[in-house]
Design a protein around this nucleic acid. Structure first.
Lengths: 238, 238
DNA sequence: CGCTATTTTGACCACGTTCAACCGCTGTGG
DNA sequence: CCACAGCGGTTGAACGTGGTCAAAATAGCG
């Protein structure tokens, strides 16, 4: 269990290393990493860590999809991010003395590597380049969160849903038979939690978009017919 | 102008160093910093950098108050943070290849030190501890932004205003004559931009709080009479 | 096949925005 | 020195988006 082993590919081939924060790590440190990480398999609905849990290390997603969300006093949840292969989890609580700031729950079967906190910090201290990469990553996430603040403050629910559908197309869209099919299964509730509204409103807007011929909806599978027209939708009314 | 010089205190005494990211920098690196930074004076309404500007370095606030805000398509502004002495500015765009993600505008006369980008990154590369501090800082900011997302998504304007007033009390409140006077002057518009609402709504809520005896309002000066009662206000209705 | 969870639809209502007018203060030019 | 424009703040009235509640339809699941 403590080595990458059989069913899991080597770190070298993992997205987190190819394009991610470890990309230009020297060979010897890479070897060190490969030796001290553990790989786990998670099923749908499994929780990797809860908001409030103590922080024990860093998670790298090798495959699968994971949603990160915060829970408010009233029990409502706000989805902050949908992470997939190559993304890392838990990094934002590693450097504060605080527990995890959000819950990470698996949406699609996932293989996830775990790296011990102290070992990871050791790597950081000996490889400034990793720190810089991580600083860049956190900065981008901060920017994204601040953009979301702006959206919630000033944009209508309709516009927020359109924008969210388009980012889903960006991240999970596959072009087939004239439409961009979203290779991700989200419940209406999850859609609502992602854009900060209620289930009912999401349903109404989706049926509206569907009857306008902008999207196709079949159970949980959504496909985007006219990305340009969706865009027009949001340009007129700020 | 290129040295700390006369009117400005030494880096060693600055809040950014005492409790901030440079706190445990070795003596020699501290000296290096002191030599290559420049100190500037800014007046109210002056803009330190605009959203979209290229990033040239890091700013440390020695004194004064600075608001950080984003501007949306429709020209509306969302205040993300009110920074004061000891806070740093521009750090979140230093590690991405992107321009500044927000505008920094002076609210109260400020003395601000500037540190060249390449020199700062040099310091980072030679002092892992600074990187770790900065990672912690960015993480906390990310968490704060995500909390704000949660607030905007699920809390009423009334609750958001109460919470904002209480954080203002936290950061700028001085207890005198039985009230917590906020040592910061915000226009109604700025209050609105901070909590994501309109000027009119802010006015109405403030007069409501005032007639309830919870706060005192005299022009731009606000004082909080009953922080506990304000808290009660937001516990009942989620 | 029955039971629960999710989705959908409808009716209603409230919070908060929008628009408009007005007030008080300040700075500016005649 | 006053008139006036301009800006920030305040108030009122009307509207609309989107949330809430209830109930039916459908899907998912043991």
């Amino acid at each position: 269990m403590s080595l990458c082993g059989k069913s899991f590919q080597s770190c070298r081939l993992c997205q987190s290393f190819e394009s991610g924060i470890f990309s230009d790590l020297p060979e010897k440190d890479l070897k060190l990493l490969e030796q001290c990480k553990t790989a786990n398999h998670y099923k749908r609905k499994q929780v990797i860590f809860y908001e409030g849990n103590p922080v024990v290390g860093l998670y790298c997603i090798q495959s699968g999809k994971v949603k990160l969300y915060k829970t408010s006093g009233g029990g409502k949840q706000q989805i902050l991010k949908i992470a997939q292969e190559g993304d890392i989890l838990g990094h934002s609580a590693l450097f504060t003395e605080t527990p995890h700031m959000a819950t990470a729950e698996v949406m699609e079967e996932a293989n996830i590597c775990f790296l011990d906190k102290t070992r990871f910090i050791l790597v950081l201290q000996t490889n400034p380049s990793v720190s810089l990469k991580l600083l860049g990553q956190l900065s981008r996430e901060l920017n994204r969160a601040e953009e979301q603040v702006l959206d919630l403050a000033y944009k209508s629910v309709r516009v927020r849903l359109v924008e969210f559908l388009l980012t889903l197309k960006q991240n999970f869209g596959v072009y087939e038979q004239g439409v961009y099919r979203l290779q991700i299964s989200l419940s209406r509730e999850e859609l609502a939690q992602a854009i900060g509204t209620t289930v009912e409103t999401v349903v109404r807007l989706l049926t509206e978009f569907r009857t306008e011929g902008l999207i196709e909806v079949e159970k949980k599978s959504i496909a985007i017919r006219e990305p340009e027209k969706l865009l027009e939708f949001i340009e007129a009314p700020y």
